[in-house]
């Protein structure tokens, strides 16, 4: 068993790099309680009929792992996301320009920490009050298709990105 640098549990990180070859810090998760597995997606019922669940709970990857690492692992740090945005040459797009496939990042109140990420599936239109639908992964739970503001994360500080 290979332990981490200070004797902590084994690293379960995998080789993941930006397009410029810089390593992306990551860790695969396996912690999910029997209750969470048993409850499955029932806990999301409070978000109403506007959401659609598209996968089972899975602790291996988180939202950033879904958005940027092919569902293989968890990426935690805002610095790592910024590294990806920079190296992969993502550019911010305005709400008016948003298209399906664009990445959406949810920031905390400070505007610095990236709390959540997902992928746009429908463009914002007047009919949807200019609110796009996105799919994203909620914690260790499932991937969910939801209106931008129909989720547990702060929708008032979001930014959209695209690789041009």
């Amino acid at each position: 068993m290979i332990l981490g640098p200070q004797g902590q549990r084994p690293f379960r990180s995998i080789v993941t790099q930006t397009s410029a070859g810089h390593a992306i810090d990551n860790a695969q998760g396996d912690e999910i309680s029997a209750t969470e597995l048993a409850q499955g997606t029932a806990q999301l019922a409070g978000y109403g009929p506007r959401i659609e669940i598209r996968s089972s709970p899975n602790p291996r990857y988180n939202c950033h792992g879904m958005t940027f690492a092919s569902r293989r692992t968890q990426v935690f740090e805002t610095d790592e996301i910024e590294k990806i945005l920079h190296d992969d040459k993502y550019e911010e797009v305005s709400l008016d320009e948003v298209l399906p496939g664009d990445v959406v990042l949810y920031f905390d109140e400070s505007g610095y920490d990236i709390e959540h990420s997902g992928v746009v599936v429908t463009r914002p239109t007047p009919e949807t009050l200019r609110i796009p639908h996105v799919y994203s992964k909620w914690g260790k739970g499932p991937e969910v298709i939801h209106p931008l503001n129909g989720c547990p994360y702060n929708p008032s500080r979001v930014r959209y990105y695209r690789v041009r």
Partner: peptide
């Protein structure tokens, strides 16, 4: 909160 936490800092 625990169920929807994506990162340790969250």
């Amino acid at each position: 909160i625990y169920a929807v936490s994506n990162t340790p800092s969250y």
